[in-house]
């Protein structure tokens, strides 16, 4: 009896989890599938996951005055070449890399010393400052978007990389996360470094930073994903200058550029944009999970 009950329980648990996984994965499945199929297959919803990959003619290529024989290609090739040809996708992605990496590096440069001070140094008002950090965690970015925009506009920084980067350089979440991690670093280690003759500044970069790699990696994933995928803020500060667009913003322009139902190339572009994140995550996965459990357990 008992065995059966637990079997049922396991079955139930797994069904729920599998259903959840399907709900989460379905959009990605569709994205990938559409990026492989021809327009007619997408429209009629045939061809399974990969589509039949029958040779098709590129209507735009023909319109541009080429001979029909020159415009024959397989749907997968058509979708992905169109994605790169129709919009400066590479440029968008380089923008995205530059912006997210800059944000992350500056966030670390700001957050580590703050977290170190908040966790390991004793000074008057420390708890109040930490309280403010927690309070800032509660403020949604959208609430301060307008003042931020006005400030940037006043100093003439809209439509620049600076506008994309500066507002995110102080991450209270990063400070909070690193502070919690630093709390678990034994005081003796810091005292030993002081005895060895390290300045407080070197302690942060030579002792705390290396021990905090797992936590930093976890924070890095959060930060990079959030800013790589961010649509809202680039939309606010980048008005017109296409050269500064980040991938999500570019994607939107891409959509309005292309005529109506060109889902294939669009999904191909989306796939290309999502891919770096997936690769980074898979590479960092083990240490990332380590980082989260380490900050969570102690």
């Amino acid at each position: 009896m008992e065995l059966k009950a637990s079997w049922l329980g396991e079955f139930f648990k797994h069904s729920v989890l599998i259903a959840g996984a399907i709900v989460v994965l379905l959009p990605f499945y569709l994205m990938l599938s559409y990026s492989l199929k021809s327009p007619s297959e997408i429209e009629t919803n045939t061809g399974g996951f990969t589509g039949a990959q029958q040779i098709m003619t590129d209507s735009r290529c023909v319109k541009a005055g080429n001979a029909e024989e020159d415009c024959l290609m397989r749907p997968i090739v058509y979708n992905y070449t169109a994605a790169f040809k129709e919009a400066p996708l590479v440029r968008y992605m380089l923008n995205g890399v530059f912006v997210t990496v800059s944000i992350f590096i500056i966030q670390v440069i700001v957050a580590l010393p703050c977290a170190y001070a908040l966790s390991k140094l004793k000074f008057w008002g420390r708890d109040v400052v930490f309280g403010l950090v927690i309070f800032c965690l509660l403020i949604p970015v959208h609430a301060i978007a307008l003042p931020l925009y006005i400030m940037l506009a006043k100093v003439g920084l809209t439509n620049s990389y600076a506008a994309l980067i500066i507002p995110w350089t102080i991450s209270v979440f990063g400070i909070f996360l690193m502070r919690q991690f630093f709390m678990t670093v034994p005081d003796d280690l810091i005292d030993a470094a002081r005895m060895d003759g390290m300045s407080e500044f070197s302690i942060v970069w030579q002792v705390m930073l290396p021990t905090a790699i797992p936590a930093l990696l976890a924070f890095g994933i959060f930060s990079v994903v959030a800013h790589w995928n961010d649509y809202y803020w680039p939309r606010v500060v980048i008005t017109g200058n296409k050269d500064l667009m980040t991938p999500p913003l570019g994607l939107r322009m891409f959509k309005s550029d292309m005529d109506g139902n060109e889902y294939g190339p669009m999904m191909a572009a989306t796939t290309v944009i999502v891919l770096p994140l997936v690769i980074i995550f898979l590479m960092a996965q083990r240490r990332f999970i380590e980082g989260i459990t380490m900050t969570g357990m102690k």
């Binding site: 280690l189 030993a192 002081r194 005895m195 060895d196 390290m198 290396p210 021990t211």
Partner: peptide, 29 residues
């Protein structure tokens, strides 16, 4: 300052730099 007092301390928890090898730990000071 501690480092200028020319004293060395051995801690109960040893407090070795966890990311450095023994050799690097020894040459750091």
């Amino acid at each position: 300052r501690p480092s200028k007092r020319d004293l060395a301390m051995v801690f109960q928890s040893y407090a070795l730099y966890p990311h450095l090898t023994v050799h690097q730990n020894l040459i750091t000071p």
